[in-house]
């Protein structure tokens, strides 16, 4: 008995085609790729039995001439599993088509959102943009930014910055449109 070269070639070809299809975004191709790869794997299991022999039935074939029955049992199980999963996958794809009229691998929106996210995070909000109640105690960053060397007090810095707005003793809101 000589080992066959056909099986390894077929297995390799099926794997190559299967991987190629599996890399596609279209789900139908993914299913086809999975089927090809499943069959390639089943053939691999089968060829693990070594050279072919007679049917492994006592009384029909001499034990020395029998082919190994165990991989055949294994491959039967594997075929059933592959078949079941493939049909489930088809049902899922059909469902996907009914739901979104698409049969491509979907995008993880939350993932994209996190990746796109920029700027303000609640942890690093500028305290100036918060309502006064929500600011950390004793926060006065805004003053340091505007303060110049000559300013002896914060009041002066504020007075210059908000020139034209009635100042602090009286509790009046600023005029409309006054911006920082």
């Amino acid at each position: 008995m000589t080992p066959t070269v056909v099986l390894p070639l077929v297995i390799g070809g099926l794997y190559a085609a299967g991987v190629y299809l599996l890399l596609d975004r279209s789900l139908t191709r993914v299913v086809l790729g999975f089927l090809l790869m499943g069959n390639a794997t089943n053939l691999l299991v089968l060829s693990a039995a070594g050279p072919a022999g007679g049917p492994p039935i006592i009384g029909v074939t001499e034990p020395e001439d029998m082919s190994d029955p165990l991989p055949q049992a294994l491959v039967l199980t594997a075929i059933v599993i592959t078949f079941g999963i493939a049909s489930f996958l088809l049902a899922i794809i059909h469902r996907s088509w009914r739901l979104v009229r698409q049969e491509v691998v979907g995008v993880d929106e939350e993932d994209r959102r996190v990746a796109r996210r920029e700027g303000v995070h609640a942890d690093e909000l500028d305290p100036d943009d918060l309502a006064p109640e929500d600011r950390p105690a004793a926060h006065a960053d805004s003053l340091h930014r505007t303060a110049r060397a000559g300013d002896s007090t914060a009041e002066e810095a504020l007075a210059r910055r908000y020139a034209g707005i009635p100042s602090d003793d009286i509790d009046l809101p600023p005029t409309r449109g006054a911006s920082r």
């Binding site: 004793a138 926060h139 504020l158 908000y162 707005i165 602090d168 509790d171 809101p173 600023p174």
Partner: peptide
């Protein structure tokens, strides 16, 4: 608590709005 915020009253006024 507005009264306690250290930012001066003018600022507080603008912020209050």
């Amino acid at each position: 608590r507005d009264g306690r915020t250290p930012a001066g009253a003018t600022v507080a006024g603008g912020r209050r709005w």
